[in-house]
Design a protein around this nucleic acid. Structure first.
Length: 471
RNA sequence: GGCCCCAUCGUCUAGUGGCCUAGGACGCUGCCCUCUCACGGCGGAAACUGGAGUUCGAAUCUCCAUGGGGUCACCA
């Protein structure tokens, strides 16, 4: 592979449990996982729950469920940042002692005022440095009395790194300013916790969304200040909505598990997500094994990718069609009414027939009802085209023919229908038969349905049709 | 607004100086198959953002412009 790393790969996926697990998260996880697995490396999961107010246990559970559903297994015990306050404290104190960080007493109102002032002057908003050069004594004295946060003393110069996807990227440290790394000695903020955890977990490759690109120089500056190494970065293009904005919960459905509940297959989602930013050389249908063999970050697109429900839907239908009926039956379990489950044989046949027609697993329940219970339908639905008389006649004739024999095979049914078709035209033979069995304007073929229903039920439905046309 | 990233059909993309009359997939669409639906088969419309370079030759390299996006929190 062309971008094979030299050292054993250790990468991680680090979501925060502050909301439903999104498809964007899933795509990031997928690419990181593929990169790790593809290179025989380690894939770690880390829960970034430093924001105690917004983090919820149910969202953490959703992260695990989502990854498990997609088959993205992780190694080692996941780190949970909320449990690592003592670790962060150690490093925060170290930076404080080394004067690489300092207490800041500015109020939020003051900062907000600074920010608007800078913005109105056309400047990049950044911390002005009011507390930067407080003496130790003053700092200590005020710390005992006033609320304060901890800022990192951003060194001068420029910060460059080589991104696996974008190449060399450079930021000027000067425009970043002294950012806040912790609310207090034990409460780190995102950029700080990330640096500590990546170091302690010996992460070699960070694969994450492009929205983190501008955090990278901050993190690198912290790494340098702490004497840590810098991992290799790969910033994935963002997933966009139809308006080309970052996919967000407010504008579109983004919950991964919502797709699952709508009846999307994990394999289809996997394949679809894979195609958002990466492309195989040949066929777009790429399963897990194939992806593991061929995935390469160097082939990842740089520009954002717009989400397409249409293509996902097509992909899902494709995977459903390709699936063995028995396997599909298993997937369908939670989508099928109890009553249908009990008619095992009929259910299996119905699934086999509807397989070609469903786009989602949920479609089955809304499509296949007629197999289990004939819906009521208007009598004239039975009439083909302008041939009501022939249609009536054919229903009776078909009923009579089927009643006369116990032979109930595809060949027999075809022969019987064809015989009528010769007399009255194909439509007048097949259409009424199919409608009598399905009660629907459109449905699978009559013979297919008849074979699924069996002789007895077929006759019964034909009798209902006869009653209807005679009424 | 500053900084950073990006730019091929509506969408996902192939394409790394000649193989491009720009290929595939989804979607759209015409025809075929056909009792309806679906599947399938064969076609079609549909793109290199613009300009200036470099070069014998640019979708491919450079620069500028334009456009889009991300980010500028005591969120992550």
């Amino acid at each position: 592979m062309d971008s094979a790393p030299k050292t054993p790969v250790r990468t991680r996926f680090a979501p925060s449990p502050t909301g439903p697990f999104s498809v964007g998260n899933a795509r990031t996880a997928l690419f990181a996982w593929l990169y790790a697995r593809r290179n025989g490396g380690t894939f770690l999961l880390r829960i970034e729950d430093t924001d105690m107010e917004r983090s919820k246990p149910e969202y953490e559970e959703q992260i695990r469920d989502s990854l498990a559903w997609l088959g993205l297994n992780w190694d080692e015990t996941p780190l949970r940042q909320s449990e690592r306050r003592a670790v962060y404290e150690k490093y925060i104190k170290k930076l404080l002692e080394e004067k690489k960080a300092y207490f800041c007493f500015c109020s939020e109102e003051e900062l907000e005022a600074d920010r608007t002032a800078q913005l109105s002057q056309g400047l990049a908003p950044k911390y002005g440095g009011r507390c930067r050069s407080l003496t130790d004594e003053e700092s200590a004295r005020r710390a005992a009395l006033e609320p304060h946060v901890i800022r990192f003393r951003m060194p001068q110069g420029s910060i460059s790194f080589t991104d696996l996807i974008r190449g060399e990227v450079t930021f000027e440290a000067d425009i970043i300013g002294d950012f806040i790394i912790a609310k207090d000695e034990r409460t780190p903020l995102y950029n700080f916790a990330v640096v500590i955890d990546d170091e302690e977990s010996a992460v070699t490759h960070v694969v994450r969304g492009e929205d983190h690109l501008s955090n990278t120089p901050r993190q690198i500056a912290l790494q340098k200040a702490l004497g840590f190494g810098t991992p290799v970065y790969a910033h994935l293009p963002l997933l966009l909505d139809a308006e080309r904005q970052k996919l967000s919960k407010r504008r579109a459905q983004t919950s991964l598990l919502a797709y699952r509940h709508e009846g999307y297959l994990a394999d289809a989602m996997f394949n679809f997500l894979l195609l958002l930013g990466w492309h195989p050389e040949g066929d777009e249908i790429v399963g897990r094994d194939e992806a593991l063999k061929r995935f390469d970050l160097s082939r990842v697109q740089k520009a954002g990718a717009v989400w397409s429900d249409e293509k996902l839907s097509w992909m899902n239908a494709h995977y459903i069609r390709a699936m063995e009926t028995s396997a599909l039956l298993t997937e369908l379990a939670s989508f099928v009414p109890k009553a249908w489950q009990e008619k095992k044989e009929l259910l299996a046949k119905a699934v086999g027939i509807e397989k070609e027609r469903m786009k989602t697993l949920a479609d089955f329940a809304s499509r296949a009802g007629f197999f289990f219970e004939l819906p009521d339908y208007p009598p004239d639905m039975l009439f083909w085209d302008e041939k009501p008389d022939e249609s009536k006649e054919n229903i009776r004739a078909l009923h009579a023919a089927l009643e006369e024999t116990l032979t109930f095979t595809p060949e027999f049914l075809t022969a019987t229908l064809e015989a009528r078709a010769k007399e009255t035209g194909k439509g007048a033979a097949y259409w009424p038969f199919r409608v009598a069995l399905s009660g629907e304007q459109s449905s699978p073929g009559g013979i297919e349905i008849a074979l699924a229903l069996g002789r007895e039920e077929t006759l019964r439905r034909l009798e209902i049709a006869i009653e209807k046309v005679e009424a």
